[in-house]
């Protein structure tokens, strides 16, 4: 199987710039969220549509960013 519908966009959550990446394989969409400054992916989800996958991944991202204390 091949990947298709690869897309990225940047958002700001809790003061962090994050990049949301999503693509489809085998009829499922996969989404991930990375911190742009750090360059590391920290939330991921799958879904039947791009919107579903991104929504779940972004919920996880919001929760993890809220738990990352700044000093």
């Amino acid at each position: 199987m091949n990947t298709h519908d690869y897309a990225t966009r940047d958002l700001e959550i809790h003061g962090w710039t994050v990049r949301v990446t999503s693509y489809a394989t085998g009829g499922r969409y996969h989404a991930s969220v990375e911190s742009v400054d750090v360059g590391a992916r920290f939330a991921r989800a799958d879904g039947a549509t791009r919107e579903e996958a991104e929504s779940i991944a972004l919920d996880k991202a919001r929760e993890r960013l809220a738990r990352t204390p700044r000093r």
């Binding site: 962090w16 750090v38 700044r70 000093r71």
Partner: peptide
């Protein structure tokens, strides 16, 4: 090679990554 936020001690580790430390 860490992010500026880690280098300055603003954060101890990147969001969602568990390995951390006592001081920034």
């Amino acid at each position: 090679m860490r992010s500026p936020q880690e280098f300055t001690g603003e954060i101890l580790s990147p969001p969602g990554l568990p390995e951390t430390c006592q001081r920034g």
